[in-house]
Design a protein around this nucleic acid. Structure first.
Length: 482
RNA sequence: GCUCUCGUGGUGUAGUCCGGCCCAUCAUCUCGGCCUUUCGAGCCGAAUACCCGGGUUCAAAUCCCGGCGAGAGCACCA
């Protein structure tokens, strides 16, 4: 058989069907009424790490027309920054995420008392005055503390007395035989005598995380709990409370942990460093707080888009600044005006017969934005970056970008034509200028000058050509990314 | 140590439930080329991945078993 006859038998590559897959996050169960929550502890302002939970919850809220509750978890009087309540709300605001309801746990202490009474009554919890170690040791040996076996009636009496005095704890009974020691009997409420920033000394018995979360999730009607998988065990604990109270459980969704390289996210550490003067405040451009990142010029949409793109798989992931920056650049590039920035400026004088006019567009892709014009007369000072000057020889022809060609001669630049010459070096320059300090997130500060055109641009992101995108703030510029 | 998760290019992601249209998607990064009075943007192209080993099957990224690896939890924190 000739090759022509074989043709029908040659397996053909199937043409690939162009799949236009609308990429989206996985669907939720029970999508009919979706109630979600974002529940930070008010220990400081929000940082990059918080934005994932926020973005994901917000995404599903919008997708299903649901409701998002901001719940401030302030049940540990020792770990509260009283400014944080407001800072968190303003951070949400900045992200354009609207909480449909704001709940503060320390306003709901009576509710936690009410529900624990029910559990005590049903024999699902107990009060003990045992010291922490003894109680924990017994647990680890799968043994019950004697206080565990007392009748509900006694437990209730002990509970009421704990409200006024004594040093005990209220414990939720689980399965003492559970192979995972983390899941055996856990504390629901404990005594804290320190005054609470909002409630002062009104209460002395404070609920702990797992207990308060379960009670609130139920009473707030939360349908879907979206959180990191570090909460896997917490979910199991919280289910015991649902069981005792006969409540229907919400849908739990756990996503993998993110590690954010080279970034300090520990609120307590940051606070310390601010106190020591290492950072100027929560909005220092070296920090990955929302305030710090906002100051550098990251856009709210960047956070949302980045996290929605990262999905919610249970694998642990690494945060990529590169990818994050790419998202931000995509948003700001088309709207950021261009400027010349000259670091370590060296002064030159220009010689020209005719007055020259700088003809530089505010944005190369958007002529409608107009130009940044400037008249350059003979004798005008021209400033050039030291690193560019280092490549100069006398009689070298260079192109002052958007102006003209010049020949370098000592500290003089002589006009040498308007037509750009192929191959000649093109450099940025400043004449009339403003001094500006460029702050990098690693703490370095570069002093330089910027064209005298920035008056109307305070607070905006612009691109310093060849340097990267920055956000302007007075006589400062904060480096964003390339 | 115990308990629980999870392993797709450098990074993130789609596909895994219900095996075939997957010689594996998209984005970013990297490297070329084009364009450009920015080292930005845009356009074109390239390179790079199903943790390993068995099994089931006509057919495995997808199912089963074993290994290896990574992470988390083990608080009177949240």
């Amino acid at each position: 058989m000739g090759s022509e006859e074989l043709k029908p038998f040659i397996p053909l590559k199937k043409p690939k069907v162009e799949k236009v897959v609308e990429k989206e996050l996985p669907a939720l169960n029970d999508p009919d009424s979706v109630v979600l929550r974002f529940a930070p502890g008010p220990s400081g302002p929000l940082h990059l790490g918080h934005t994932r939970a926020l973005a994901l919850n917000n995404y599903y809220k919008k997708r299903y027309g649901g409701k998002l509750i901001l719940r401030l978890e302030d049940t540990n009087p020792n770990a509260i920054d009283s400014d944080a309540y407001e800072m968190i709300e303003s951070d949400l605001n900045w992200l354009s995420i609207k909480a449909d309801e704001i709940i503060i746990q320390s306003d709901r202490i009576e509710l936690y008392y009410q529900e624990i009474r029910k559990i005590l009554e049903k024999g699902g919890a107990y009060v003990t005055f045992s010291d922490a170690e003894e109680w924990r040791d017994l647990k680890n040996q799968k043994k019950a503390h004697p206080d565990r076996e007392r009748s509900p009636k006694v437990q209730l009496t002990e509970f009421e007395s704990l409200l006024v005095e004594g040093k005990g704890i209220v414990v939720i009974k689980t399965d003492l035989e559970d192979p995972n020691p983390a899941l055996r009997d856990f504390v629901a409420l404990r005594v804290v005598e320190e005054p609470h920033p909002r409630q002062s000394t009104k209460y002395r018995l404070w609920p702990l995380y797992n207990y308060a979360v379960a009670v609130d999730d139920y009473h707030l009607g939360i349908t879907h709990v979206l959180r990191g998988k570090d909460h896997l065990n917490n979910t199991l604990k919280q289910k015991w409370i649902y069981k005792y109270l006969g409540w229907d459980e919400p849908n739990y969704i756990h996503y993998g942990l993110v590690s954010i390289p080279n970034t300090n996210l520990k609120t307590s550490k940051i606070r310390e460093s601010i106190k020591e003067g290492e950072f100027s405040g929560w909005d220092d451009c070296q920090l990955a707080t929302l305030k710090g990142l906002a100051r550098r010029g990251y856009r709210p949409e960047t956070f949302l888009r980045y996290w929605e793109n990262s999905g919610l798989k249970e694998v642990d992931i690494k945060f990529s600044w590169q990818n994050f920056d790419a998202v931000n650049k995509d948003i700001i590039d088309s709207e950021s005006r261009r400027l010349f920035f000259v670091s370590d400026p060296i002064e030159y004088t220009i010689e020209t017969k005719n007055t020259l006019v700088k003809d530089a567009p505010w944005h190369p892709g958007k002529p409608e934005l107009g130009k940044r014009e400037e008249q350059i007369k003979s004798g005008s000072k021209i400033y050039i970056q030291k690193s560019d000057v280092e490549a100069f020889d006398d009689n070298k022809l260079v192109r002052l970008k958007n102006l003209c060609n010049v020949v370098v001669n000592g500290r003089k630049l002589s006009f040498e034509g308007m037509q750009p010459k192929k191959g000649s070096q093109i450099i940025q320059w400043c004449s009339s200028h403003t001094p500006i300090d460029l702050f990098y997130p690693d703490g370095t500060i570069v002093k330089g000058i910027v064209e005298d055109n920035i008056s109307g641009l305070d607070g905006e992101t612009v691109q310093f050509e060849r340097v990267g995108f920055v956000r302007l703030e007075g006589k400062k510029a904060f480096f964003l990314h390339r």
